[in-house]
Simulated scan of single mutants.
Amino acid sequence: MSRGLTIGEFAQLTHLSVRTLRRYHESGLIEPAAVDPFSGYRYYTAEQIPTAQVVHRLRQLDVPLADVAKILATEDTSERAGLVGEHLRRLEAELDRTRAAVTSLRQLLQADDRPPHVELRSVPARTVAAVEGVVDHDEVLSWYADAMAELDAAVAGKSSLGPPGGRYANDLFTGGRGAVLVYRPVADPPTRGRVTPVVLPAAELAVAVHFGPHDDIDVTYGRLGAWVVDHALAVDGPVHETYLVGPRDDPEPGSWRTEIGWPVFRLAAK
């Protein structure tokens, strides 16, 4: 009978180090097919190679050891695929955050001394179809997507009076949780589910346009805020966003345009 593969041979075939294989044995993740009772040498079989390769790939994706063990112990293929898919979705979300941070950092590192184009605008009061809520900052994107989908369904067939928009309370940024409102300007706003008619009060805004995806929208926020300070304008009230061109209009992020409206009033001269 063949003695099997030594731990060194198995390590070479699976690209898992001897040290790693010993740790996996101790944790019960990959147990040797046999252990010599006198020498303590570990021996593996060729049939264990695919399992070791799966473990290797999962660990390359930073799947925790406990989750790897759960995946290996699951015999149902659909359940196993679900466990792997859940981790992949977490990785993709993390990758999106990393890409957004890289994009924003590149923008910040590019020297641009040109002042932003800012327009001072008086916005009249108007009644819109809106969804309101108090939301954690980390949940804004998912809340927005659900609320806007509900809005779209509620106003279907009604005449649009302008692009959609949102208002975001200062507490959302300063405290991590705050009031959020998203809206669609339509004729005769309906009441349906969370959608209700809301009167947006008149406001004086300093407005700048952010071009492209929202990965680096904080850069435009910063430049607009600096302009407000430089021009002796004081902030008062929630920030407004108007989605002139967004994913509903064009799938190409480079074409998106978002207006950021900062409520202001002129400081009295000293």
Rank of each mutant, 00 (worst) to 15 (best):
M1T: 10
S2T: 12
T6N: 08
I7N: 06
E9L: 08
H15P: 00
V18C: 10
R23T: 15
Y24D: 05
S27K: 02
E31L: 13
A33Q: 11
V35G: 02
V35E: 09
R42M: 13
Y43N: 03
T45E: 14
E47V: 10
V54E: 15
V54S: 15
V55M: 10
R57G: 11
L58P: 06
Q60I: 04
Q60R: 10
V68Q: 09
I71Q: 02
L72N: 01
A73Q: 06
T74V: 05
D76K: 03
T77D: 10
S78E: 15
A81P: 15
L83A: 08
G85A: 07
G85H: 05
G85E: 05
R89M: 11
L91P: 08
E92N: 05
E92G: 01
A93Q: 14
E94V: 14
D96S: 10
D96G: 11
D96V: 05
R97D: 14
R99W: 03
A100H: 09
V102I: 08
V102N: 00
S104W: 04
L105E: 12
R106A: 13
L109D: 02
R114T: 08
P116I: 00
E119H: 06
L120P: 07
V123Y: 05
R126Q: 15
T127P: 00
V128Y: 04
V128G: 05
V131H: 01
D136F: 13
D136E: 14
A145R: 12
D146H: 11
M148Y: 11
M148H: 11
A149W: 02
L151S: 08
D152N: 03
K158E: 01
S160P: 12
G166K: 09
R167M: 08
Y168V: 00
Y168A: 03
A169L: 09
A169T: 07
N170S: 14
L172K: 06
F173R: 13
T174C: 00
G175T: 12
R177Y: 02
G178A: 06
Y183I: 03
P185E: 01
P189K: 02
T191H: 09
V195T: 07
T196V: 14
P201M: 00
P213M: 10
D216Q: 01
Y221L: 09
G222E: 08
A226L: 12
V228G: 01
V229S: 04
H231Q: 07
E241M: 04
Y243A: 10
L244W: 06
P251R: 04
P251H: 07
W256Q: 11
T258N: 04
E259Q: 15
P263L: 01
P263N: 08
P263V: 02
R266Y: 05
R266S: 12
L267A: 05
A268T: 15
A269F: 04
K270E: 15
